[in-house]
Structures are given as C-alpha cells and as structure tokens.
Design a protein around this nucleic acid. Structure first.
Length: 121
DNA sequence: GTCTTGACTAAGC
DNA sequence: GGCTTAGCCAAGA
C-alpha cells in the first residue's frame, strides 16, 4: 500500500472543528480568527482558520461571515465583492460597520465572559 | 527539497 | 489613526 495516498484526515478533521466552532457563533455576533482558532483547539493558528474557511464548500450552513479580524475589520479588501457580500450579511443581522470597523466591544462574541455574566445559573 | 503566499496577530513607528 | 515588520504555520508552486 505504498502507493495508497492517505487523504490526511487530520487536515479534514481540523476543518471540521473550525467549521463547527464558527457555527456556534450566535446571530448578530462576530468572532475573530484568533478566537475561533483558540476555541477550535488550534492555539494561535489564526491563519489556519482562514484557510479552513476558504476550503468551506459553497452552500454550507457555516456563518463564515461572522468571522473577522482581531481589529474588527473584514479580512477582505475593502470594496471587493467578497467584502460587500460579508458586510451585507452582517448588517442583515444587525452588525453595523463604523468606518469599516466592527465594534468588538458590542458585537464581539465574548463566549466566556458572556456566559459568566449572562448564565442564569 | 526550498521558496512564496495567505480570509492572521501583536508590536513598533 | 494608519503603515511596517516580524512571528506564525500550513498549502502550493
């Protein structure tokens, strides 16, 4: 089986974890690449998240547009079709951009803090 | 096998 | 506030 090329399921597994994590981002909220990487168990491999999202099949239910840069900006070049698409999807959920930026203090998905403060317990 | 690229981030100017 | 540099890590060429 030397010629048998293994599909390196590890990479696929990582993609699955990233996508699964992104799906947990609630509507109207956004998360950063680094945050998703951390939650997905990838440490600080933020670029890995970007790659996983790029590999994302079209028509998936994964809200890829809820993932933005650490500075609150959309990762695509301003004005590009992808940028406009993402902005529109975000605004449709109530996430507005101010000067091309998203206020992470307002729309940031502070999972841990959120649960600590809101968990009725 | 090395080099470049990229849906990133933090730090410095 | 924005631009540059360095660190990062895996996929392609």
């Amino acid at each position: 089986m030397t010629g048998m090329k293994k599909p390196v399921p590890q990479a696929v597994e990582i993609n699955r974890r990233v996508w699964s994590t992104v799906q947990q981002i609630p509507e109207g909220k956004v998360a950063t690449y680094g945050q998703v990487a951390d939650l997905a168990g990838l440490g600080r491999a933020a670029r890995r998240v970007g790659r996983a999202l790029r590999e994302l099949p079209a028509g998936s239910e994964v809200p890829w547009y809820r993932v933005i840069r650490a500075g609150g900006q959309i990762a695509f070049p301003t004005g590009s079709s992808a940028f406009n698409r993402q902005r529109k999807l975000l605004e449709a959920e109530g996430v507005s951009l101010i000067n091309g930026r998203i206020d992470l203090g307002v729309y940031g998905w502070q999972r841990t803090l959120d649960e600590l403060l809101w968990k009725p317990d």
